[in-house]
Write a protein that binds this DNA or RNA. Structure first.
Lengths: 221, 221
DNA sequence: ATGCGTACGAAACACATGTTTGAAACATTT
DNA sequence: AAATGTTTCAAACATGTGTTTCGTACGCAT
């Protein structure tokens, strides 16, 4: 067995199917994608899908699992140090929180190949399938980490509902850029999310996060 | 022809089809919904859909149009006075902006029947169909109004990219509550979005908006 | 009552779609 | 070389799905 090569067209059928399936599931959803579409894009026979994965639903689940692995890898590689040794002081926690959200922007809005991943996750949120649990386990972990940082930065109780809700609101700022991408780009009269626009968005979100933390710190009763 | 009655189960076939279609399109998407599902829920024959609307795609378009009408009505009824005579002073604009976003929370995450509407719109954002233009016309109008208020509240240029982007980030806070509803409710250990939770979310978002405006006002170069 | 256009319902039609089949090609081992 | 297990392919199969057909009932003006 050869070692897994770099992401390219010269992979094995199984990898090509997974890659094509992620593209299509992310773009058109589970029901909007046919196995013939996937087979055509992956340049394999239709039967190869049943052969390698058992069926369409099992393939979808495999895609979700690979997505979770990919995301968890990217994020953990960049913020592992924050989550392992969370800063105790408020200033350090705030800096860590900003870095955490900044990483989220990079991962979700940045790489073009993350578009399909982000959309698949968002779809799964709106319309959970049996594969939802796989995603939720990861999201829950990230949300928990964000909540710890937010609580440390503001002095709020990490268990308080306002704290946990506040973290979701921060994340919402990032998600909207992928969800409403079409509308955002049109209103901004931009053809695509290039590096410059991403830098602007990141700076704005970072400033907003700082403002939210400050407001939460002052606003606590 | 009888006058259109109140929303109930005793409507004509056309209204029942529209209602059932909104339910299913919102929950499962266009490709995830079959005309037999719709006909079954609406308690009409399958042929009634082609008869009344021409086909599945035309029905979907009709649903989108009715959704736009419904939303535009709800929102305009509550914020028309803000959009017609936008406050010139910063303080008034800030109050108007808060009311604007607050209305958005009420409309999007408030009424249970808006769940299907919100989801249909979000789906259309992620995967635009020919009916997207109908929605975009409305969204563009609202985003433009929000941008005017935001600009007036902060002193920023309404045409600047940062201003328009900032409005999307505010809206993202609201959207995330509907998109990631399942994850949010689980992390909050809540069974549903009741009035109390919505009040909390609204207060938090309002506080965040205020903080964002303040940050933007100070942060401008 | 008669004629006529509208609305409805059961069945059928044509095509799409997920899955399976059986044979051939390939790689690896004996 | 022969055997064995794995992978690929074209075709077929069963079901799902959007649409149409055609017969029937209803409402209403003549």
């Amino acid at each position: 067995m050869v070692a897994a090569t770099e992401h390219s067209a010269a992979e094995g059928p199984r990898e090509r199917i997974l890659d094509a399936a992620l593209d299509l599931f992310g773009e058109r959803g589970l029901t909007g994608t046919t196995v013939r579409d996937i087979a055509g894009r992956a340049k394999v026979n239709i039967a190869a899908i049943s052969y390698h994965f058992g069926g369409k639903d099992e393939l979808y689940r495999a895609v979700v699992e690979s997505v979770v692995g990919s995301i968890a890898g990217r994020v953990r590689a960049r913020v592992a140090h924050l989550l392992e040794r969370p800063p105790a002081d408020a200033a350090g926690a705030q800096a860590a929180l900003e870095e955490f959200i900044g990483t989220m922007v990079d991962v979700i809005v940045g790489p073009p190949e993350m578009r399909r991943v982000a959309r698949l996750i968002i779809r799964e949120q709106m319309q959970p399938t049996p594969a939802f649990e796989i995603l939720y386990a990861m999201l829950s972990q990230f949300h928990g980490a964000g909540t710890q940082l937010f609580a440390a930065a503001t002095g709020l109780d990490p268990a308080a509902e306002e704290t946990r809700l506040g973290v979701f609101l921060m994340i919402g700022q990032v998600l909207v850029l992928r969800i409403a991408e079409t509308a955002v780009l049109r209103r901004l009269e931009r053809p695509a999310f290039d590096a410059a626009l991403m830098g602007k968005a990141k700076a704005l979100i970072r400033r907003n996060v700082r403002a939210m933390v400050a407001a939460a710190r002052e606003g606590r009763t």
